[in-house]
Design a binder for these strands. Structure first.
Length: 604
RNA sequence: GCGGGUGUAGCUCAGUUGGUUAGAGUAUCGGCCUGUCACGCCGAGGGUCGCGGGUUCGAGUCCCGUCACUCGCGCCA
């Protein structure tokens, strides 16, 4: 019998029942342990690790000994049962080992810039530069597999829900709204550019106009914006979907089982044993969310709720808050449960943290056995404080943090303080996935910088009340059929019931200060399509990378992406972006304003 | 664009008030060890303390600038 050239089994496959078989394994030298008479080799592949034993002094030892870790070898030999005292129950293959009769060196590895064995942290720069080595490491290797399995599950679930997968263009037109585009110069059309899609937004709406009814795609999206821990620069993937003849409730009903199902499926990944909030997901109006959680992406695992306590400070002895409230601004309160034993430093640190975040400060009141302390309590009085505590539903040992100022600023600070207080007091249950919808986003907002009304979210959303609302209501009071889905404080997706009517579209853009001609120019493809019979439609686009990040329990999105760019949107492994040849530029009719090799352009 | 953090051996880190020849673990290399599986024991090599400037008799340590990575703000319809 001849064996396969490289392997008859994988390195994770052999068991006691295979003892006596002649086998061939290939893999990387994961780790070696040299003993008096024998060399132990942990041979690793994608599937697992098998122990190979070579006797020191043998010909095979002379072949294998000089090889460094991560060299690739092929081992041929008979499966041996391990002696009872040498069984390793930590390894699935720990009942057996291989004494090779032949070893072939497939690839000898030089000394490594990044060890594969072990799970200690390495500098991001080194990891990204040598990503193929980093990806061999157990933790990220598993993350990437999880990602693949999550995507397969999403795809299967969408198809089961009756959605059809389509591919939309990658080279498309620049759109004036939204994020900065990545531009691609046209060779054929001097001076003209394609743009990479920020999302297949218009294409998916056009698919509805084209009558396809239920679309989805694991869609690449490109946005030239700066990175965050949960935002990979440049490109990311969305589970993009759209459906026709639907209300907001229909969209929720279609996607909730998909998301709930995929989170349930992977909640116990790596034995993490987490639970998922039951269906249907909670719905929270935007304004309520901003009040109670100080955020439009609340972490519902956090039990603390913000309360507006402005009214309590009207005419208060604490003059600062009294004048803030009398000036039309607000005071928001965040509970600090069971902090009666906390030092003054705990409260002062929260205040300096707020200042470091750019806020004037975070007020506080301590409470022990129903007695309030701190400067605010001293001036506001015990009775006044009791009234506040009662309104907040506090116990006798719960302190309070106060965020005061303009409503938007106070809400934001209260939200950040809510998160920070819960983290400091360890109140967040990490074993849960808590989903909610944020609904009823405002259609418009006042842009303080431009001094005009502008779209607050997506200009293609249908206003609630449709044309009549646009014509009769204060624009800032109009709500949109616009919604976000949030899990554990992470915004997974934004979506909307779209505005499919040209008349309503023109009116909405008019309120935001755009003429009909501008709409016709910038959104020609879509507005024209809507003139020839367009179905009411809506959808959403949950972020795939963020879903995987939550399931993998990673704080950083790069841990679930194969080849991510760094914070400055550079691919350190492939050296992108890079300079191109003069010939390439000439073909594209481009002359650089920066001298080649001059480095990044500096602002004056 | 702005703010915070970090930067000391290949890697993870320590380094006192500014004071002798900058240390530990790990990795590497050599030796020892009848079975390890994070093996163990002994030994060795390995440093422009990110870079530049300044203060000082003397700087890893203090000051200024700069670079890299990262977290956040702005930005992300």
């Amino acid at each position: 019998m001849t064996l396969h050239a490289y392997r008859t089994h994988t390195c994770g496959q052999l068991r006691a029942t295979d003892v006596g078989q002649e086998v061939r394994l290939s893999g990387w030298i994961h780790r070696t342990r040299e003993h008096a008479n024998v060399l132990f080799i942990d041979l690793r592949d994608h599937y697992g690790v098998t122990q190979v034993i070579v006797e020191t002094g043998s010909e095979l030892f002379k072949l294998v000994d000089p090889l460094g870790p991560e060299s690739v070898i092929t081992v041929t030999g008979t499966v041996s049962a391990r002696a009872p005292e040498t069984l390793n129950d930590k390894l699935p293959t720990g009942e057996i080992e291989i004494f090779p009769t032949a070893i072939a060196v497939q690839s000898s590895a030089e000394s490594l810039p990044l060890p594969v064995f072990g799970d200690i942290d390495y500098p991001e720069e080194v990891r990204l530069k040598n990503r193929y080595l980093d990806l061999r490491r157990e933790r990220i290797h598993k993350n990437i597999l999880l990602r693949s399995n999550v995507i397969a599950s999403l795809r299967r679930r969408m198809i089961e829900q009756g959605f059809t997968e389509f591919q939309t263009p990658i080279l498309t037109a620049s759109s004036p709204e939204g994020a900065r585009d990545y531009l691609v110069p046209s060779r054929v059309h001097p001076g003209k550019f394609y743009a990479l899609p920020q999302a297949p937004q218009m294409f998916k709406q056009l698919l509805m106009v084209a009558g396809f009814d239920k679309y989805f795609q694991i869609a690449p999206c490109f946005r030239d914006e700066d990175a965050r821990a949960d935002r990979s620069p440049g490109e990311f993937y969305q589970l993009d979907f759209e459906m026709s003849y639907v209300t907001q409730d229909d969209v929720f009903a279609a996607i909730e089982p998909v998301l709930h199902g995929v989170f349930e499926e992977f909640a116990d990944w790596e034995g993490k044993g987490r639970s998922v909030s039951p269906l249907p997901f909670k719905r929270i109006p935007y304004r309520e969310s901003m009040l109670k959680y100080g955020s439009d992406k609340p972490d519902l695992r956090n039990p603390l709720l913000v309360t507006d306590v402005s009214d309590f400070f009207k005419g208060s002895g604490f003059g600062r808050f009294a004048s803030i409230v009398e000036g039309g601004d607000v005071v928001r309160a965040v509970p600090a449960p069971n902090t009666h034993e906390k030092s003054r430093k705990f409260f002062d640190d929260m205040n300096s943290w707020a200042q470091s975040e750019g806020f004037p400060g975070l007020g506080y009141a301590t409470q022990k056995d129903g007695v309030f302390g701190g400067p605010i309590a001293n001036n506001h009085g015990q009775d006044g404080m009791k009234a506040i505590a009662e309104a907040m539903g506090l116990g006798p040992n719960d302190g309070i943090f106060f965020a005061a100022g303009k409503e938007s600023q106070a809400a934001k600070l209260a939200g950040l303080a809510r998160t920070r207080a819960a983290e400091q007091l360890e109140l967040i249950d990490k074993s849960r996935f808590e989903f909610c919808w944020i609904v009823d986003f405002p259609m418009f907002e006042y842009d303080e910088e431009a001094k005009k009304v502008d779209f607050s979210h997506n200009p293609f959303s249908m206003p609630q009340g449709e044309l009549e609302a646009l014509e009769s209501k204060d624009p800032l009071d109009i709500l949109a059929w616009q919604y976000d889905i949030v899990c554990n404080g992470v915004e997974l997706s934004s979506g909307a019931i779209r505005n499919h009517r040209p008349d309503i579209m023109y009116k909405a853009f008019e309120i935001a200060g755009y003429s009909q001609a501008e709409v016709d120019t910038n959104f020609a493809g879509m507005i024209n399509a809507f003139k020839f019979g367009a179905p009411p439609h809506g959808g959403s686009a949950p972020g795939v990378d963020r879903i995987v990040m939550l399931l993998a329990d990673e704080p950083n999105i790069r841990e679930v992406i194969l080849f991510p760019m760094n914070q400055k949107a550079e691919d350190l492994m492939m050296n992108a972006p890079s300079e191109v040849s003069a010939k390439q530029l000439k073909e594209l009719h481009i002359r650089l304003a920066v001298a080649p090799g001059a480095g990044p352009a500096k602002a004056e």
